[in-house]
Design a protein around this nucleic acid. Structure first.
Lengths: 341, 341
DNA sequence: GTGAAAGCGCTAACAG
DNA sequence: CTGTTAGCGCTTTCAC
């Protein structure tokens, strides 16, 4: 196998630009990095030279010299591989790569599976191959998160990392308040027996949404109205079956994710319930699939675009040292009323 | 903003390994790159030294020295942004990043939007920032594809690139045969008035699936049975409405994608048709959402895992020069029978 | 505000 | 099979 590197017609280097602009390499470098302490005149000369030469920086060289890599990892631990089938996942990828680009960074998608095991991924990430990491939807006791948290690698978590709320930076929604709003809406519509299918209770989302449900119900709360799910469609379907059997007079259902909600609707229909006439269903996420449900799903909207952008901003600040303390931001949710409730 | 590079406790360099192993830097480098022309004994010494030192290669340095970047772009042109909402997209990303990893490469997700316009993306990609590119679902006359095709950048296309079938490497399914099989299946089930909702006819998938449909129908084909879609759910819904109105006795529907098929099913239901009793529906893709449809969608399975892996393999061969001619591979499809037909 | 000089860690000829 | 020697293109002190 002869490794013939693509020789793309000798890209111009900083040296060429310097010569053409009549300045030194250092000056060009300064312009490249913000143009501080450079005479305006020189800046424009350099820019002009770069333009005519079609210059673009060589990342490898820059990274080697600066000790940074220019890339950021999107870490998906094995347990969350199901995310890949989730339409929200695509949205996140798009937002991340777009936002990172504005900081001159790249997105590297990594999964635990890629490396055989979490340990390997942990080694990789902490070995200096990336400048920082974005971590999605951790659950309690996640080994990889623990590892990264202790490594000093700049890290931003999407969703509150249970057990690391203070140590790590995160961007999340107010799960409790959001769930509460969803359930109160059904209450306001006259529903009286409202059940819930929860997410995993060892995640902040699963737990927070359940707490919000419980708080909204107050004294009306009853353990029999609750079934635990794991975000999967299978769990949504099965939980709905169990619930409707145990509580035949169920007239409302708050489901912790759209994916589970859509599966639950199918089960409800199988059991002969009309939606929303017999039982109202409210989901969570406002995923792209929600509008395709039959009827279209009423759900809590999560601003993935916004949270993704915030996460990237924070991570950048952490990487360049503009922020030293962990940052926490809460993004707003809102109820989207469609046909199911 | 003080740019403080993370000084992760002085990573060991190739030099350290060489010293500990009692060999020269070159030998270590050789071991790192496959260990050709190195005495077995030396190899193990080096490996051992790397182990005790916890050495891992510095990509930036390697890239700078070798003139390669180690990363590969997944190019999604603006027209295909809808892909992000498609569950198949997540599958592709996962497969790509996993497979690339086995070649020591990374996945860089890029979209036309990222760069303001295609031109910018084209500049970026051909400026040497990536070693190669994976291009998803091109349509005819795609400017970016044209640009990349002429640039000499190693490139593999998913789906046949209309107009570049010979010049470029691609991995695709036999669209015509697959569609034909799907329609024949319905024919075999006794359906006689089978309509179709096509994909865009300026894509090989859209066109091929339509041709397969037409071929299967033979003399039974009638233009009135055809509605053109654009892969979107909205198009699926609207096309189904039009079709059922124009052809009230429709008893079968072949839809060129699962997303459109699911939307079409909703429209059919609204029009009072039972599925599959009144009209059978067959989709295409076997996306993760297919099982969640009501009834579950009968569809042509596409082996995304396999095509993604093939694409990466070919791209790697192209990059290292193991392949010089464009490579073409056809991956198999199969009909998955579920409830809708 | 600007230039000179010294590497960043690695690969890749080139001898031997 | 192995060591020596040059850089790859950029950032970054350090003087001026």
């Amino acid at each position: 196998v002869s490794e013939s590197p693509r020789q793309s017609a000798a890209r111009p280097t900083i040296e060429d630009v310097a010569r053409l602009a009549g300045v030194s390499r250092s000056t060009v470098s300064r312009v490249l990095n913000g143009g501080l302490h450079v005479r305006p005149e020189a800046i424009s000369q350099v820019n002009q030279a770069m333009g005519t030469l079609g210059y673009s920086v060589n990342q490898a060289a820059r990274n080697l010299a600066s000790g940074r890599t220019g890339s950021v990892a999107f870490v998906i631990s094995e347990q969350h591989e199901h995310l890949f089938g989730d339409p929200n996942f695509g949205v996140l990828i798009r937002v991340f790569s777009r936002e990172l680009r504005t900081y001159g960074r790249h997105l590297l998608v990594t999964t635990a599976q890629d490396y055989g095991e979490e340990t390997f991924l942990g080694d990789y990430l902490t070995a200096g191959h990336v400048d920082g990491a974005l971590f999605a939807l951790p659950h309690e006791g996640e080994g990889l998160l623990h590892r990264l948290a202790g490594s000093g690698l700049p890290l931003v978590v999407l969703g509150q990392p249970l057990g690391y709320e203070h140590e790590l930076s995160w961007v999340a929604v107010d799960e409790v308040a959001a769930a509460q709003e969803a359930v109160r809406y059904m209450l306001g519509e006259g529903r009286t027996r409202i059940g819930t299918i929860t997410g995993p209770l060892n995640t902040s989302s699963g737990r927070g949404r359940f707490e919000g449900y419980r708080a909204a119900l107050g004294p009306r709360f009853a353990p029999d109205l609750v079934e635990a799910g794991d975000w999967s469609a299978a769990a949504g379907r099965e939980s709905a079956r169990v619930l409707i059997k145990r509580e035949p007079d169920l007239d409302g259902l708050f489901v912790a994710s759209d994916l589970m909600a859509m599966a639950a609707m199918a089960a409800l229909r199988e059991a002969g319930r009309r939606i929303p006439d017999d039982v109202a269903v409210v989901g969570f996420d406002d995923s792209t699939a929600a509008v395709m449900a039959e009827p279209a799903l009423t759900t809590m909207h999560q601003p993935f675009e916004q949270s993704g952008a915030e996460a990237v901003r924070i991570l950048h600040d952490l990487i360049v040292g503009a922020a030293t303390e962990p940052q926490h931001v809460l993004v707003p949710t809102r109820l989207i009323r469609r046909g199911s409730a």
